[in-house]
Design a protein around this nucleic acid. Sequence first.
DNA 1: CTCCGTGCAAATGGTTTGCATCTTA
DNA 2: TAAGATGCAAACCATTTGCACGGAG
Lengths: 142, 142
Amino acid sequence: MGIDILKSKLKEHGKRITPQRIVVYNTLKESTIHPNAEELHQEIIKKHPNISLATVYQILNLFEDELRIVKSISTNHIKHYDIRSEFHIHTICPKCGEIEDIYSDKIKLFWENLIEELRLKPEDQIIKIYQVCSACSKKKEI
Amino acid sequence: MGIDILKSKLKEHGKRITPQRIVVYNTLKESTIHPNAEELHQEIIKKHPNISLATVYQILNLFEDELRIVKSISTNHIKHYDIRSEFHIHTICPKCGEIEDIYSDKIKLFWENLIEELRLKPEDQIIKIYQVCSACSKKKEI
DNA sequence: CTCCGTGCAAATGGTTTGCATCTTA
DNA sequence: TAAGATGCAAACCATTTGCACGGAG
């Protein structure tokens, strides 16, 4: 399924199909968090110990800038990656930095109305809501 | 005007009023772009050559994390600062990185309805639209 | 067989930090 | 005059890059 999409995107852009690119793609697809390059690399080397961190960085840049199959969300100075293509927004906890997705037809509708109203032609968008996550709000403040 | 707000915020947080903090605040207020730390420092040293870049960084962190009077927008790995407190969204040019503000009562109303609808309690939000700016769209592609 | 992609290590560069000095309250 | 802020330079660390080797087409 997904791998075929990757393969056709690679061909379309004159890029080669390599095991490293497939592993990065699959690991991102399977990830439940929004990993940064380091976390993604850690996950990958559990099964493929030979893939270097630099390669992961290079592949993520390829996926983001040329193939446009991932988006990055920066928190502090670290890029976190998201391979979900469906329209959604992110909540970010200002305390622990956890990123969550929110999918909602209402948000999508809101957004479509908005860009029409403003006559915008966005290539992409990032909508981040800073909101203390449930785990952090349970912790007592000192 | 604005400086009184800064002064009361500083007192409120037990921080001292220093010439450097005032200059950073005023320069941000007067800036028409969304400067990063380096650009802000360059602007500042035109009139106050003794302020160091490290101090500008420290003050920006103070303003963002403790006083909450500025917001940062990251493009690539660089933080750009925005002191406007009124609700607005940003467009970012994927080619040149230029950031523009969009103010709109309709957007504000949409947004307020949306967060009520979703029962969210945002402390803050960042809404970024990636869209080629007019200057870049005029340039011929090779 | 030719290049593109990878792995490694070194470089980069925006940001942070340690410390001595200066300033605010 | 004591705690906090600044300036300088060095350190940090996420990311990028140069280069030799290896693998895809």
